[in-house]
Design a binder for these strands. Structure first.
Lengths: 114, 114
DNA sequence: TCCGTATTTAACCGATCGGTTGTCAACCGA
DNA sequence: TCGGTTGACAACCGATCGGTTAAATACGGA
């Protein structure tokens, strides 16, 4: 796993299985077995993916008896958004109407959150 | 290189050298030699990095005599922003004041663009 | 205490990564 | 036409990736 945090974040997200796990965790914490269920691979493989996500601090893990519930951590995603922001000016300059589109997306997200 | 576009984008960005190349390209197109100059590695290595960025469609390449100028392409970054948007609701719920912070960042970027 | 469930670890595997060196192709200018 | 510059390509290398199977660990319950 890469040393610098941003590389670790990008690396962790560069795998569909790991992104699917994150997407699942948006809906709430889950056990390893629960996270593994949709994927046709061994539990050990999923455990490895979780280790990658944890080392990138994208998830944290609790302890509940023999379960190790996974919890989504927003900080690295926020950092990623900050990194992306430094390019927004660039693509705003090149793609008209995108700003408005993203603002609309944000509005929708806000509404859903209410 | 990963098959699906989003994985390819994340993979390409999970390397500091490649991100540095992108950052340089924000300021304008550049030749391979020019892009290689700040990095202490062979030209061939940089050429490989450019191939990764190109296959992820993060850059495109022109032809000017024996030069192959590199050009930053915004589309994958825009797609990445769209992917991130689906998590904004999540971290907005968890980190107060972040939305305002990002909106301020956006405003600043807008101003700079004017 | 022994059993079952949940999860991690270890050892292994083929494929790929990120770098190297060496060679080759394309193009310009003298 | 020849030399110099720019860049790509191939072959190679050690390290790491993403998966496997098998064994070990941690915990609660009967």
């Amino acid at each position: 796993m890469p040393a610098d945090p941003l590389s670790a974040t990008f690396f962790a997200l560069a795998d569909p299985t790991r992104r699917a796990i994150l997407a699942r965790l948006v809906q709430g914490d889950a056990s390893v077995k629960e996270l593994a269920q949709p994927h046709q691979m061994s539990l050990a493989a999923v455990s490895k993916h979780l280790k990658v996500l944890e080392s990138a601090k994208l998830i944290s893990r609790g302890r509940e008896a023999q379960w190790r519930p996974c919890h989504l951590e927003p900080a690295p995603l926020r950092d990623l958004a900050t990194w992306l922001e430094s390019y927004r000016q660039f693509w705003d300059r090149n793609l008209d109407g995108l700003a408005a589109y993203l603002q609309a997306l944000q509005r929708d997200a806000k509404k859903q959150g209410d």
